[in-house]
Simulated scan of single mutants.
Amino acid sequence: MKRLTPEDIFNKDFKHVLRGYDIEEVNEFLDLVIQSYEDVLEENEYLKEQVKKLKKGGGKPFPGRSADPYDPIIKEILVRLEKLEKIVFR
């Protein structure tokens, strides 16, 4: 299944019917969906870059900190990345 892009959402056209939805209300909602989706994609890219930096730097997020996956900061990054992947790739 192809992943949707914000442009796909923006360009989606719906049929007009006699007793359909309010077009303005649908458009306003789609604008919110697009913005939220763009935010998720940006955060996902940011977190991917953070993971790359951690792997490149020997896994140490900050000087003096361990690369232990149970480290609270590492754990939080991994949890956020997992949540974003579930949202983006479902």
Score class of each variant (00 low, 15 high):
11 N>M: 05
19 R>D: 12
32 L>T: 11
65 R>G: 00
40 V>Y: 04
75 K>A: 08
77 I>G: 06
50 Q>N: 08
78 L>Y: 11
21 Y>Q: 14
84 L>W: 00
8 D>P: 01
15 K>F: 11
18 L>A: 14
76 E>K: 14
78 L>R: 04
51 V>T: 10
61 P>N: 01
45 E>K: 12
84 L>E: 01
26 V>M: 13
8 D>L: 01
43 E>N: 05
9 I>L: 15
10 F>S: 14
74 I>T: 09
20 G>Y: 05
4 L>R: 00
40 V>P: 00
11 N>I: 05
43 E>R: 10
84 L>F: 01
17 V>S: 15
75 K>T: 08
51 V>W: 05
58 G>D: 03
28 E>T: 05
16 H>R: 11
40 V>E: 04
44 N>D: 10
84 L>C: 03
25 E>W: 09
32 L>D: 11
72 P>M: 04
63 P>D: 09
48 K>T: 11
15 K>I: 08
61 P>Q: 01
65 R>S: 07
51 V>M: 15
54 L>M: 12
51 V>P: 01
62 F>M: 07
74 I>F: 06
47 L>T: 10
63 P>H: 03
10 F>R: 07
46 Y>H: 12
32 L>P: 00
31 D>M: 06
44 N>C: 12
1 M>Y: 01
88 V>H: 02
62 F>H: 05
20 G>K: 02
16 H>Q: 10
35 Q>I: 08
16 H>L: 10
66 S>G: 08
28 E>F: 04
30 L>D: 06
25 E>Q: 13
80 R>G: 13
85 E>Y: 02
67 A>P: 05
15 K>S: 13
35 Q>A: 04
86 K>T: 00
62 F>T: 06
82 E>Q: 15
32 L>F: 09
37 Y>A: 01
15 K>H: 14
50 Q>H: 06
51 V>S: 08
13 D>G: 03
76 E>G: 06
22 D>K: 06
77 I>E: 07
49 E>F: 10
1 M>C: 00
75 K>Q: 07
88 V>E: 07
23 I>V: 15
33 V>R: 03
87 I>L: 08
40 V>I: 14
46 Y>F: 09
2 K>I: 15
12 K>N: 11
51 V>K: 11
34 I>A: 00
3 R>M: 14
19 R>M: 05
90 R>D: 15
74 I>Q: 06
37 Y>C: 02
57 G>C: 02
82 E>K: 11
68 D>E: 02
46 Y>S: 09
22 D>G: 04
46 Y>C: 06
57 G>V: 02
68 D>N: 09
12 K>Y: 12
79 V>M: 11
26 V>H: 06
3 R>P: 02
22 D>Y: 04
88 V>R: 15
17 V>K: 10
62 F>W: 08
19 R>V: 07
13 D>A: 09
56 K>L: 13
71 D>H: 12
1 M>V: 12
32 L>Q: 14
28 E>I: 07
11 N>G: 04
38 E>L: 03
1 M>D: 01
19 R>S: 05
79 V>N: 15
60 K>R: 13
63 P>N: 06
41 L>Q: 07
16 H>K: 14
50 Q>E: 10
5 T>G: 02
63 P>V: 03
59 G>H: 00
17 V>Y: 08
56 K>Y: 10
60 K>T: 12
44 N>M: 13
60 K>W: 05
18 L>N: 03
41 L>H: 00
10 F>V: 12
2 K>M: 12
68 D>T: 00
